[in-house]
């Protein structure tokens, strides 16, 4: 009994998130029977592939007590830069590697400014956001079509899923899943992961404990940069184009997903698994509105706002209990 109780308390926010997702999905499926098709569920992954990837990076940053506002703009920059390179007949694999390096490097630079110059993460990454979006428009102001064989192949090849009839995902969709598993293991069962949680709980005491604070912080921001570059690649593949206007205010969607997924913005707690469900909940609300077809769009925003509030309520409930 005690075990169950402690398990519930420990994973309360996560379980609540999962439960709400299932509940919302069930209501949706009841209202609109076509939502019961398995493909609707997999479409959530296809449609939110990029959001999932940046949310994973954001989760790690937030657990460490930081924030990264540059992710949405990084998607735009990556998509434009890779489209421009591909237009000049660059090798697609080379382009992808280059983009990942660029993202990681930009994240690293921001991490350096945050850690060594002691500037607020909020401000630095905001600057990164302006810079990345500005550069995207400087490279090309209108959208560039990608006409590369390899990209085309990645974009249009469906992977039929076993056990489900007529259900499929696209190749880039898998990137998020792989990254999710990798990050989950990284955070839950490595020394590095524990350091991230420790810094999020209390940076000072982490430092006093002799943990490699500087190194970890730089790695986490670089990782977030890597994630946003990867998300940018996925984005440019699924849309087969690059444009400076892509990923507008996606950082806010990511933060909302992270929070809905049970990660506290103060740092120190949270899981990427929760974030997955945060992203899915975000997606399912949009889907329900789209299936309804008469509700006006402002209900999406009000709905997401209200849900965030509910989740924070649930979270604080659990944290209060924990403290007692």
């Amino acid at each position: 009994m005690q075990k169950i109780k402690s398990f519930l308390l420990k994973n309360g926010p996560l379980l609540a998130t999962v439960a709400i997702f299932i509940l919302v999905y069930a209501i949706g499926a009841q209202l609109y029977p076509t939502m019961k098709k398995p493909q609707v569920f997999f479409n959530l992954f296809i449609n939110n592939g990029s959001l999932l990837i940046i949310s994973i990076g954001m989760t790690m940053t937030v657990i460490m007590g930081g924030i990264d506002l540059s992710v949405g703009a990084m998607i735009a920059l990556t998509s434009v830069a890779s489209a421009a390179l591909l237009q000049k007949n660059a090798d697609p694999v080379f382009v992808m590697v280059l983009m990942l390096l660029m993202g990681t490097a930009l994240g690293f630079v921001m991490g350096c400014i945050i850690h060594y110059l002691k500037v607020e993460a909020f401000v630095v990454t905001l600057m990164g956001q302006f810079f990345a979006r500005g550069m995207a428009y400087v490279i090309n102001e209108s959208s560039i079509t990608i006409k590369n064989e390899f990209y085309n192949y990645l974009a249009l090849t469906k992977i039929n899923l076993p056990f489900f009839e007529k259900a499929y995902v696209y190749i880039p969709t898998l990137a998020g899943i792989v990254l999710l598993i990798f990050t989950f293991i990284l955070l839950s069962s490595t020394r590095f992961g524990r350091t991230v949680y420790a810094i999020g709980n209390n940076e000072q005491s982490a430092l006093l404990m002799g943990l490699p604070v500087a190194r970890t912080k730089l790695i986490v921001y670089s990782f977030s940069g890597f994630c946003s570059a990867l998300a940018g690649i996925v984005f440019s593949i699924s849309l087969l184009s690059g444009y400076g206007g892509y990923g507008q205010s996606m950082e806010m969607d990511a933060i909302a997903s992270v929070v809905i997924g049970g990660t506290a913005l103060t740092g120190g707690t949270g899981t990427v698994l929760g974030t997955l469900f945060g992203v899915l909940i975000n997606g399912i609300i949009v889907s329900i509105l789209q299936f309804n077809g008469t509700l006006t769009s402002w209900w999406t925003r009000i709905g997401v706002g209200a849900l965030t509030l509910i989740f924070i309520g649930i979270q604080s409930l659990f944290y209060v209990k924990k403290k007692d």
Binding site: M252, I255, A256, V259, S297, W298, W299, T300, R301, I302, V304, G305, A306, T308, L309, I312
Partner: peptide, 10 residues
């Protein structure tokens, strides 16, 4: 953030 998301909807 809650009001930021919901506010324009309102």
């Amino acid at each position: 953030l809650i009001l930021m998301v919901a506010g324009r909807g309102i």
